[in-house]
Design a protein around this nucleic acid. Structure first.
Lengths: 229, 229
DNA sequence: CCAAAAGTGTTGTTAGTACACCCATGG
DNA sequence: CCATGGGTGTACTAACAACACTTTTGG
């Protein structure tokens, strides 16, 4: 730190990869930028961290401003800070991903976003800044952790069918799974509660509804069970 | 970004948790600070990132300056940026860990460090700043990844015995392992080469020496084999 | 010849994988 | 009565866990 003033000239931001699941596809919540640079391009929601704001607070703020949600699963993934990644100066961006129940989100446009929309992750091929790289890094991390920790439930409504859970895993991991084996594994893990309640109004045999078992779930989260799928 | 000048006043640094292994214990390379704040305290090696320097470049620079080593395993873990973590201003620090062959390191003091020394990880209970938290976060990550990826070899000399490898795993994971089962697993994974060379000058039956098989190793690294130990 | 660590197989148990048919409902 | 997805069991295979004695060297 030979000349400190040279160093205290960078900014830090949080970019948040908000994942949701809509019964068939993994989605990501994107904004269309309402200001330069990259005016009009799709981008990850994010913002600079205020001088007296902690990182996790900023991450929660971005999520809350866009979705109105609090107490959501949020995981720090990686910091990106290539010298030329931002045209306005040196900006280190700390990438988070979050998992939300898509039906609870009613996205609203804001001062920095003209438009907000859920996009299918596998169809996103261009974003402002280095956001595509950031999104893909977060996707890899989600895929890894989905197999090691029981975090899939965060993407589902409170009551779900085992088929919905299986579709979520298949969609995120991009791999087909055997129905009977999947169910055996989930049941044996002891992290779902059978509610003894059934779907209604479906044109086929109604499925049982489950919720996750909060206590066993917290236990399993800590232990980071191996969920080899 | 209502008033950009307010935001571009923070600094970014890299702190590097350099792990080594000395036949029995997992070690970490620490420096004794030669300047304020925390003058005289033990700390992680780290430095501010220069205005035109990339993050990974800074991480490699810190490692090189302290150890003379290049092309070393380096993994970004997490960014810490509590508002009050640094008394001189807002400093976001990006934590890395690296794995080095301890016998290749001849640590040298530098402008910012009075003293450099290997400390046993399990005995470190106080460090400058929030460095203890950073070290422990990196240790957890190492423990997780040691079980999922074949990175243990990075801590050993080129030629090693299977017993040395086992001791490394036991020491890092803090768990005793069965000798026969451990060997079976390692051999079956196909990532070590039997050199058909033996230890000399030991007061017991000499052990076979192995090196890791670079090609199979790179393959396994990509796949992130499950190495359930 | 003693001390020290190296090296080696088998068996029982558990988890993983592959696979096909009947059931309950709405239209 | 048809279409749709729900729900269930078994047999084979692979991986894991537990466990004890003989070998080779230096001193």
């Amino acid at each position: 730190m030979s000349n400190p003033s040279e160093y205290f000239k960078s900014a830090a931001s949080v970019d948040n990869v908000i994942f949701g699941f809509d019964d068939t596809d993994l989605k990501v919540l994107l904004i269309r930028r309402g200001e330069e640079p990259f005016y009009g391009d799709w981008a990850l929601p994010g913002d600079l961290i205020a001088p007296n704001e902690n990182i996790i607070t900023a991450a929660n703020r971005i999520l809350y401003d866009l979705t109105g949600l609090e107490n959501v699963y949020l995981e720090q993934v990686m910091t990106f800070g290539e010298v030329d990644r931002h045209p306005k100066g040196r900006v280190f961006t700390i990438a988070y991903f979050s998992l939300v129940n898509i039906k609870r989100v009613f996205p609203k446009a804001s001062s920095f976003a003209n438009e907000v929309s859920w996009k299918t992750v596998s169809e996103v091929d261009q974003l402002a800044f280095d956001h595509l790289k950031i999104m893909n890094t977060c996707l890899s991390r989600l895929q890894t952790n989905l197999r090691l920790k029981p975090i899939g439930f965060e993407l589902l409504p409170e009551r779900f069918t085992l088929t919905e859970l299986q579709q979520l895993y298949e969609s995120v991991l991009r791999k087909e799974l055997d129905k009977r084996n999947f169910r055996k594994k989930i049941i044996k893990m002891n992290i779902v509660k059978d509610l003894n309640v059934y779907q209604t109004g479906v044109a086929h045999r109604p499925a049982r509804l489950y919720s996750f078992d909060e206590e066993s779930y917290q236990q399993a989260l800590k232990e980071g069970i191996t969920f080899e799928i």
